[in-house]
Design a protein around this nucleic acid. Structure first.
Length: 208
DNA sequence: CGTTCGATGCACT
DNA sequence: GTGCATCGAACGT
């Protein structure tokens, strides 16, 4: 079942927590890619210095002030489209950034898209658990672009579904990749998941 | 193991 | 002109 707009019409931290375990689905013509959301971050209001709404309304951040259940997609570092779901009532600028997915549909297409990135050309194939690890990587894998900005998330070709999956153990931590607003533990993730972004998780047995 | 840095485009000052 | 809600390779220790 596709999440209705009301799902997003709530406090952003609640939406962030509830998005863990939901499925982001990209449906274009004959191609379909999807992944289970395992890592998100909340960006809440003009008082949050890391939120794009911090400077007040501008041309870029307009979707944050709009109705909930809409995509806010912007270009970061000139290279990466980053995907957010707008939350809270209209007029309250806030969103949840999707940072990582566990790929579940269209893995070969994801791998093709990821391999086509300039810095990936001629490199070994991307392992499954890295296909959607990181906010820039998952938009690449799902083919989400700036053209999806302001798109409603309540119908194809871009939507988030509840498939009744159990989210596992949920963990809150500091948001990463930002220089301000790190005092808020507004990053929410499925603990220990292989697709989490950020510093590489320690592999193998820890020394006794 | 850790830190640095280039690629690359656009909104904002 | 400056600074990013990044990525991953290249370096230093």
């Amino acid at each position: 079942m596709i999440l209705p707009a009301d799902f997003y019409h709530r406090p952003t931290l609640d939406v962030a927590r509830d998005l863990i375990g939901k499925v982001l689905v990209r449906d274009a013509r004959s191609t379909r890619t999807a992944g289970v959301i395992v890592e998100v971050e909340a960006y809440i209001g003009e008082d949050d210095p890391a939120c794009h709404a911090a400077p007040g309304p501008t041309a870029r951040n307009a979707p944050l002030y709009g109705p909930p259940g809409v995509a806010y997609v912007y270009l970061n570092y000139g290279l990466h489209a980053l995907f957010n779901a707008v939350t809270e009532p209209e007029g309250a600028p806030a969103a949840v950034l999707i940072r990582a997915l566990e790929p579940v549909e269209g893995l070969s297409l994801m791998r093709r898209r990821r391999s086509r990135a300039p810095w990936r050309r001629g490199k070994p194939l991307v392992p499954d658990h890295e296909l959607c690890r990181g906010p820039g990587n998952l938009t690449c894998a799902l083919g989400i672009t700036l053209a999806d900005n302001r798109r409603r998330l309540t119908a194809p070709p871009l939507s988030i579904e509840d498939r009744g999956l159990t989210a596992g153990e949920i963990e809150w931590s500091s948001r990463i990749g930002i220089s301000v607003g790190t005092e808020h533990a507004w990053r929410c993730s499925a603990r220990g998941h292989a697709s989490l972004s950020g510093p590489r998780t320690r592999r193998g047995p820890s020394p006794a």
